[in-house]
């Protein structure tokens, strides 16, 4: 009987070696260790053994059972591992195929750039003010030192609603409105939509957007204006950006200036974008005209201030290299999805 048991062990070893899947392994277990399995069968014959041999054979049988079970477990692990590996292999996908995109929209480029500009000025302690787009002639012109029949009105071809009501030609009227309701210190930017009766072409639109700035306090200097705008330009266009002021004329500031930044395309070497000058004009600025302060109810002997205004559309186009302002208002999805 001992020999039979040894025979079963050897046989089991051989058969197990050839088992190649989990189902066969289950069958193998049943075949050898099940209630009707080979080992059980042999043990049934234990009764015919002399009593003194029984414990020995019993022990041997248990050893063999334990051994086979151990081997089955080992085999099972190997086979499970193999099966998992096979499944993983079968599940291989083409990771280069396109992903399922969550469909998300985008802000308009004008909003993106405006948000950047707002953040820069908020960081310098400015607040954001607003004013009406349909405006009194008084706020748009008179109180900004542009009386009726002043030639400066020529540069701002105006849409009129009535003799005294118009579509604001700039965001500057909000300067006066803020001065009227707030004592200095005043430190605001005014983003907004403005209107000029220009025919539409690649660089002109009858509707466009400005960001106005106004600071009024004691001891505000033109040096402060230069400093603030230099910080702004470096934040918006990058730390390598240089700025320069050129004298200019606006009726509502004196002294007045235009500010250029070193060309954002060539860095100042000269290229097509900057007409080979190395500079690009981005805004008008100046010290608030004493008459304008007076119109706003602020004493020019006590306070001084600066103001600036920039074209948001132009700056947006500059930042993104957009060569036609009409694209901003056409809203072609293929354009909007680029930002």
């Amino acid at each position: 009987m001992k020999a039979e048991l040894e025979q079963i062990r050897r046989e089991a070893e051989q058969v197990l070696a050839s088992v190649s899947n989990l189902q066969d392994l289950t069958n193998f277990r049943v075949e050898y260790l099940g209630k009707k399995g080979k080992l059980t069968q042999i043990l049934r014959g234990m009764g015919s053994l002399p009593p003194e041999e029984r414990p020995k054979i019993g022990q041997l049988a248990n050893e063999i059972r334990a051994y086979i079970e151990g081997e089955i477990e080992k085999k099972k692990k190997v086979l499970e591992e193999e099966a998992l590996n096979q499944r993983l292999k079968a599940e291989t996908i083409d990771v280069t195929m396109p992903g399922r995109r969550h469909h998300r929209g985008k802000l308009h480029p004008l909003s993106i750039v405006l948000n950047e500009i707002k953040d820069i000025f908020l960081g310098m302690g400015f607040e954001i003010a607003e004013g009406p787009e349909v405006e009194w002639d008084y706020y748009n012109f008179e109180a900004l030192n542009i009386p009726k029949n002043h030639p400066a009105r020529d540069t701002q071809d105006t849409f009129y609603i009535t003799e005294n009501i118009l579509l604001r030609t700039h965001t500057s009227p909000t300067q006066i409105r803020v001065m009227e309701r707030q004592k200095p210190p005043i430190k605001i930017i005014v983003p907004g939509r403005v209107y000029r009766s220009d025919a539409v072409d690649a660089t002109h639109s009858p509707i466009f957007h400005q960001v106005e700035g106004l600071v009024i306090d004691k001891n505000i200097t033109m040096g402060d204006l230069r400093g603030v705008l230099d910080v702004f330009a470096k934040e918006l266009f990058g730390p390598q950006t240089r700025t320069r002021f050129r004298p200019h004329h606006f009726p509502f500031t004196e002294p007045s200036a235009e500010m250029d930044v070193s060309c954002t395309t060539c860095g100042g070497e000269g290229c097509r974008v900057c007409s080979y000058t190395g500079w690009i004009e981005i805004l008008g600025a100046g010290m608030v005209h004493p008459k304008v302060l007076k119109y706003g109810g602020i004493d020019p002997e006590q306070y001084s201030g600066f103001a600036f205004g920039m074209g948001l559309d132009r700056i947006t186009n500059l930042k993104y290299g957009i060569d036609d302002i009409r694209l901003l208002f056409e809203n072609d999805i293929r354009f909007l999805e680029q930002f």
Partner: peptide
């Protein structure tokens, strides 16, 4: 020379910028 005016950042009160 406008560009010879030294750049400064407003002295005095520090204001806090915030949105409404």
């Amino acid at each position: 020379g406008y560009n010879n005016i030294p750049m400064t950042l407003m002295e005095g009160t520090i204001s806090r910028g915030k949105k409404t």
